[in-house]
């Protein structure tokens, strides 16, 4: 009987989740002709090529760098702002809305705006810096800076969402716990470190897990700002999959699927590790 109730859901999952997954695994072991039709079993050839290709090693490195540069900074900055916004200051509502605003921007819109700001010749950032005699910098064109610039834009985009989640957590903080802490003489940083932050670890944990997944799947800002360049220094795994499958008339669906399998594994492993290691330190009320 239970199976009968589950059947519709299973059917949907089967058709839209599991079958494509199985199909991807199959395609990742096939070659493709110029039109992109899969054909010819090549076994693990794509995987062998992938793991022996220095270009792919670089893709993994860039992906790791991008994740490191986006996830923690965006959470830490949001946390700092959220804590500041707990204070009763004038114009609090205004600041709250203002800081949460990035959440309302689509990735595409924000990326286009950042592209304009970053322009090495006519961009506002270099324009302002020139007044203090610094620069000009090739924000998106200098191979050493591009990943940092794209990450910076991503942190900004992610900030609003993180802030909302953390503010909600802080807002739901039980007054009696805080009062008890204060009565015990905890103030300032000590109060934040020992009482407030432990109480919002569920929110922090949630943001770390979803932020990591989100970051590993980022595409829009890279597509719009750098197209994976300069010198492939911003080509993350997802962007590489896109390039192999859809860009430049490539249609290497086999190779792209093999990379998608790696992405799936990376996401699964990282999330499993996060659940295993970090969740032990999360304080659930």
């Amino acid at each position: 009987m239970a199976m009968l109730y589950l059947l519709p859901a299973l059917a949907v999952f089967g058709v839209f989740m599991f079958w494509p997954l199985v199909k991807s695994i199959i395609i990742s072991m096939q070659g493709t002709d110029i039109i992109g039709r899969p054909g010819g079993f090549v076994g693990l050839e794509h995987y062998r090529h992938m793991f022996s290709d220095p270009a792919f090693a670089k893709v993994i490195g860039v992906t790791a760098g991008f994740t490191l540069l986006t996830v923690l900074p965006s959470i830490l900055i949001a946390l700092a702002i959220a804590l500041l916004l707990q204070e009763r200051i004038r114009g609090l509502r205004f600041f709250r809305s203002a800081f949460a605003l990035p959440f309302a921007f689509s990735v595409a819109t924000a990326s286009v705006i950042f592209g304009v700001l970053y322009n090495p010749a006519s961009g506002v950032i270099n324009g302002l810096l020139s007044y203090v005699g610094i620069g000009p910098f090739g924000w998106l064109t200098d191979p050493d800076m591009a990943l940092i610039s794209v990450s910076l834009a991503t942190v900004w985009m992610q900030l609003g969402y993180n802030l909302l989640i953390l503010s909600a957590g802080l807002g739901a903080m039980p007054e009696d716990v805080l009062e008890a802490a204060r009565l015990d003489g905890a103030t300032g940083l000590r109060l934040q470190r020992s009482v407030v932050i432990p109480l919002i670890t569920p929110q922090l944990f949630f943001l770390i897990v979803t932020g990591t997944i989100h970051s590993l799947q980022s595409f829009g800002q890279i597509y719009i700002l750098t197209k994976g360049g300069p010198e492939n220094n911003t080509t993350t795994l997802v962007y590489s999959i896109y390039e192999q499958a859809f860009a430049y008339n490539n249609s290497n669906f086999g190779y792209a699927s093999a990379q998608a399998m790696v992405l799936l594994l990376v996401v699964l492993v990282i999330t499993a590790v996060q659940f295993g290691v970090l969740e032990r330190r999360v304080f659930y009320r």
């Binding site: 839209f16 989740m17 599991f18 494509p20 997954l21 199909k23 991807s24 395609i27 992109g36 039709r37 899969p38 997944i213 799947q217 997802v238 999959i241 499958a245 249609s251 669906f253 792209a256 699927s257 998608a260 992405l263 799936l264 996401v267 699964l268």
Partner: peptide
Amino acid sequence: GAASVSLLLSACG
């Protein structure tokens, strides 16, 4: 999430 990537790819198969 991962499956949707694969769906996208296999739709082209």
